[in-house]
Design a protein around this nucleic acid. Sequence first.
DNA 1: AGTTGTCAAGCTAGT
DNA 2: ACTAGCTTGACAACT
Length: 295
Amino acid sequence: MKVGYPCINRSIGCTANSTFKLASYSEERLIKTVKNNLECLAKILRYNVENDLLFFRISSDLVPFASHPVCKFDWMNHYKLQFKEIGEYIKKKDIRISMHPDQFILINSIKEKVVQRSINELDYHCKVLDAMGLDITSKIQIHVGGVYGDKPKAIERFVERYESLSESIKKRLVIENDDRLFSLKDCLYINQLTGIPVVFDSFHHECLNSEESVRDAIMKAQTAWKDKDGSLMVDYSSQKEGERRGKHATTIDLSLFKNFIDETKGLEFDIMLEIKDKEKSALKAIKLLKEMKIL
DNA sequence: AGTTGTCAAGCTAGT
DNA sequence: ACTAGCTTGACAACT
C-alpha cells in the first residue's frame, strides 16, 4: 500500500501549481511559471520520499494553459531534461502518480466543442506523464460526466467516445465514482463495456452507493484493474462535521480512518487522502499505519 | 502591506 | 432565471 495526497504541499514553501490569468499570458510568463512548478515538484517529491509518502497527484496546472489555443510554446521540448529527471526520480523511488483534470473535462458532453477541448486537455495530461517517461500505472482520472436527463444514453456516449480516443490516452485514462451522478456500480458497468479501470472514491461512495460495504466495493473495484494498470487507486476522505453533505474534512479523523483500514485489511490498493490539510493528514495516516504494522 | 474580487472551461440542483 | 458548489487556491487589482 502506498499513501499520498493531492497536488499541494504546505510545508515546503513553494507550489507546483502556480498559474496566472489568461489575460496576462505571455511566453515569458509561461516559461517562468513552468520552471518554478517543475523545480517545486521535484522538491515535493523529495519531501514525500523522506516521509514515506509514495503516492502523489500532480496538479493539472503544472503547465498553465497547455491545452489552450493561446499556448503555442513547445514546453515539452523546452523542459525535456527537467521532465526526464523528475520521471527518473519517480521511477527510482517507485512513486505512484495520478493526475486529475477538473470538472470541465467531459468526454460524454452533448456539445462537440466541449468534447474536443476535453480531449485536448487529456492529451496535455498524457504528454506530461510521457515526458517523464512513466509507464501506464500512472493514471489520469476523470468523472464519467453529465447525465443530461438520460443516464443510459450518457453512458452510451461515454463508451462511444472512449473507444475513439487515441491509444496513448486510453492507456492512462481511468474513471472515478462521483457523489451525485455515476456510482461505483455505474462505473463498473462502464468497465465491463470498455475495460477502463475504476478509481474507488470512498467518500463519494458514502454519498451515492448501491449499499455495498466498503470492503465489498473495494474488492469489486479491484477487478477493474489489470496487472499493467498497477494497484487499485482509492481516494479517501470523510465528511466535514456540521457541514453540507459532501464537504471534505479539514483534517483527518483518525478513528474513522482506522475503521476504514480495519475493514479493508489484507486488500491491496494505493490510497490518496483528499483532505484539506494535505500532507499534514497524510503524515498522521502514515504514523497510524506504521503503528498498525501495515506499513 | 493587506484586502478583496476574480479566474478558460461544464454540469446539476436548489433557490 | 440565476447561482453555489465542485479538487480550491492564489493571482491581480485595489486600498
